[in-house]
Design a protein around this nucleic acid. Structure first.
Lengths: 197, 197
DNA sequence: CCTACCGATCGGTAGG
DNA sequence: CCTACCGATCGGTAGG
């Protein structure tokens, strides 16, 4: 009660350090001993804070999923706004999540396959729902004549692909700020779907 | 000399099976015993055909790199052709490699980080050169007034990102043929960079 | 291509 | 949070 830091922050610290390692080496190639060393303690000690290696991965993956959904929901709150505006806001929200924690994002995008069942299937269902949300927005935009694309599903897939490549090249100390990146990406991707009629 | 299949095809068979496993589980989480079982032999026997697990990964990654470069070179052979045409051909060539062997492509895109030095650095240099080739083409197109983009580097990055997402969703038995996919992707991505002046 | 095996390392636990 | 340890599994080798 007097000398040690609270457990909560230790757990968060473990998650954060593990996320960075999972990103750099991959989940399977990261050992708990490596993680412990990085945190300045012994491997066995980790287990007073967490239950298993996979529990960390689970928290990172599902935590990020929540952030993505929250961002999308906020971007489309005003359902009376032009679809192009909603889509722009959704793109910017997505990029904001990606840049706010690019290590966790990279783990979310690349390491989810190491989740065991049933978490893996649940995760994929969430990802599908998120893709479907973007697809739905694009479909609405096409129906309203605001957007143009030969195939909404195709457009949604390439749009998310372009965005999700970001953690691979984004550097927090780069010359473009997160907001500038979000703006440019939205500009370029919406430009490709602009309706000229 | 009379009863067994030639070693060359056995080695190719090992590469192919390993590639599928690396893709499904990741390089680090794939064991040589698993690979051996899949091939109907014992783990130790693999080593009469290969030197190490990483040797397989090395072959897959650098083999794919060669294919990508060959495709790009063929697409830009006629340097007098309009840049938009060369870019379209380069996109289609890239997609053709991705769809021809999507397992190897997924390994090329995701598992290269498990290469040890100096192969890892060499690989990244090749990837950079390839990106630079696309960037250069887009820059030429902008300079010639054929293409429009606020930032060539940005455009090259998002273009390759859209293409490289393909192995994640491409199914050989899907309703779109590789050629149709290549055509649509080229259409959509070039549309986003069309010059309207 | 197999049998038999090597040393190293893994995730995780018991007991304090 | 540490010490001491568990059984399992890893990539790879020797010798045939």
């Amino acid at each position: 009660m007097s000398t040690t830091a609270p457990t909560r922050s230790r757990k968060a610290q473990i998650d954060r350090t593990a996320t960075a390692l999972f990103r750099a080496r991959g989940f399977a190639a990261t050992s708990m001993r490596e993680l412990a060393t990085e945190l300045g303690l012994e491997a066995g000690s980790l287990y007073s804070h967490i239950k298993s290696k996979e529990e960390i991965l689970h928290r990172v993956c599902f935590g990020l999923a929540e952030e993505f959904f929250a961002g999308f929901a906020a971007a489309t709150l005003d359902s009376a706004a032009p679809i192009a505006t909603q889509l722009r806001l959704a793109i910017e929200a997505h990029v904001r999540v990606l840049t706010r924690d690019s290590a966790a994002s990279a783990v979310f995008l690349q390491e989810w396959r190491h989740l065991s069942e049933p978490a893996r299937t649940e995760f994929l269902a969430l990802r599908d729902r998120y893709e479907a949300a973007f697809r739905g927005l694009i479909q609405q935009g096409i129906a309203a004549g605001e957007l143009h694309a030969p195939d909404a599903a195709f457009a949604a897939l390439t749009l998310l692909a372009s965005l999700n490549w970001l953690p691979a090249w984004y550097r927090p100390d780069g010359k473009l700020s997160p907001d500038e990146i979000a703006h440019r990406l939205a500009e370029q991707l919406l430009n490709g779907m602009r309706s000229y009629e």
